[in-house]
Design a protein around this nucleic acid. Structure first.
Lengths: 327, 327
DNA sequence: TTGAAAGCGATACCAT
DNA sequence: ATGGTATCGCTTTCAA
């Protein structure tokens, strides 16, 4: 056969050209990925394993930004991007799991795909959750939530409401009950709640479980329902702490619709600092968590040969008009 | 060896369990994807080949929605999703192209990846462009643009402005010149421009090239600059026709900032009907192009064994307040 | 410098 | 029903 593909330097350019052309005519379509990958034990494919469905993750601004960061760095390193979801897991169709050279798990995975991948010994980076089995990229959700809540609560408001994400195991929008309050968990939303509660505590304020909403999905549709409920309470909350920008932006829109002035009547805070939040009117006070950079950092960690250490990215309080200091 | 993996029905569940456990201990990590794929000549991986970079496409609401639709149907059919970009093309690292069983090309690809894939004989679906070599999923951009422009121009406005996307080959925001006007092209943006011009013509209106902006990328950052330029014109345009919702939403925001009343002072139309447009204030009059459904349809076409025919999805005029009928 | 051959791991097929 | 074996296409190594 020909080494035209593998040792291009050893042939004249002309000859190589001719060989390539002729073999193309004979029905040769370039190197076979599966064969190469089998032989080399390497594929140059990196998988991102999403905790939610791929479709939902693509619709979520936070996940979407993370993926952008991942794609950026993978592109620079000539790696291919395979999207997997731990949701549609199952031993049956798990064969694709053996293809990638490395894995970025975004969010604590369901099923046992993590276990299987771990056993394969291939490099893994955990993003937005902790595990003993891999380096991770995280933020300090509790601190971020504490900081923004602290900012919002400085004037000791009377009625504080929390619009929370995925706080309990239910597909329905609902408010918490007393026994929902003391769940110990390392989930993101629980950490954020903890931060809120700590800030309340520090300001010597209290909150009733019924003032804390559970929203099962980070979508505008869900969030709007909860936002309407919260904004039609009597008395009106002074402060609404939202666990995501998607939720907070829904509150802003709903307030506009209900002719409630932000921040004069209600102060609103978000979390994430998604692109849309950077352009909203009124501006959204929130916690920047650098999702794009998170994706980049995770990917660099994964591709770096030298075993670097886990990373905790800084969060930053972004003060805009939806909850500005009334000095 | 064992057939435990391949013929599970022929062994007792117990035995299978034991074999699986033991082989795991011996360091067996499940079937090898590359080997299976090589042997079977099939991978269950489908590639979406994006005309722009992966990172940019993920940030674009239209591309993002298409991908959601694709991911949804692939999930139902237990196919994996590989993201490729024709932008970072090059024979060198094109090996991954031989992996997928099928390809969805989103937007006319650059480089020659399309040619190579075509020669491989694998199924291809073209989305948002036409080719003789594959079935395609499209919309009628000219008609869509014509319809929305017609709606906007019904009252014979004096000053019409177009904020166009990728009309000329430049990385800079600029206005068109006379010779830019008569480029024949099947590009999306050219079709939309054609629709606008036809509507103007039909209303016996004219537009100067200097009233047509070129915006190189569909990002809010770019769009805002052009929006500001258009909204600080004197006299103020009566109508601004935007070739995408991202652009139109930027116009709405900028108008708000400049205290220009929409639609009283300026009527604004978009194109796409992205999720954000469905929630904007004021509501955005636009052309719904069903990106999500486009992704679904393309994927079904690809996976369907029976050679179905190319599809042209309907566009629909969505009238909201940014350009409502003043009856 | 070029060619020949072994082997990556799963599967399909044929033999038992 | 079970076990053996050739084969997919490439890369690596070894021989000429």
């Amino acid at each position: 056969m020909s080494n035209a593909f593998n040792r291009p330097d050893q042939l004249s350019a002309k000859l190589r050209e001719r060989i390539l052309r002729e073999s193309a005519e004979l029905g040769y379509h370039g190197p076979n990925f599966a064969a190469r990958s089998l032989r080399k034990g390497q594929s140059d494919v990196i998988a991102v394993v999403l905790a939610d469905s791929i479709s939902y993750s693509l619709s979520d601004p936070v996940a979407s930004q993370l993926l952008q960061g991942v794609a950026e760095v993978l592109g620079e390193n000539k790696k291919q991007l395979l999207l997997l979801s731990s949701e549609s897991d199952g031993l049956e169709h798990s064969s694709a799991e053996s293809l990638p050279d490395g894995f970025i798990f975004y969010g604590a995975p369901s099923g046992d795909i993590f276990e299987r991948v771990k056993r394969s010994g291939k490099p893994i980076i955990a993003v937005d959750f902790e595990t003993h089995d891999a380096e991770s990229v995280n933020i300090n959700n509790e601190d971020g939530a504490f900081t923004v809540a602290n900012h919002a609560l400085i004037n000791k408001p009377k009625n504080v409401t929390v619009l929370g994400l995925r706080l309990v195991d239910s597909q329905r929008i609902c408010r918490l009950t007393a026994q929902d309050m003391h769940v110990e968990s390392k989930e993101i939303s629980r950490s954020r709640l903890k931060g809120y509660l700590r800030a309340l505590d520090e300001q010597q304020l209290t909150i009733s479980p019924s003032q804390i909403w559970h929203i099962p999905l980070n979508t505008p549709e869900m969030a709007e329902i909860a936002a309407r409920e919260a904004l039609t309470l009597s008395p009106l909350p002074d402060v609404i702490l939202c666990m995501s920008d998607v939720i907070a932006l829904s509150v802003l829109r709903m307030a506009n619709e209900l002719n409630i002035a932000i921040p004069q009547q209600v102060q609103v805070t978000g979390f994430d600092d998604i692109p849309e939040a950077q352009r909203s009117s009124p501006g959204l006070t929130t916690v920047c968590q650098q999702s794009l950079e998170k994706g980049r950092v995770a990917t660099r960690l994964l591709l770096d040969k030298d075993h670097s250490d886990s990373v905790v990215l800084e969060t930053r309080l972004v003060i805009r008009t939806s909850c500005a200091q009334v000095s």
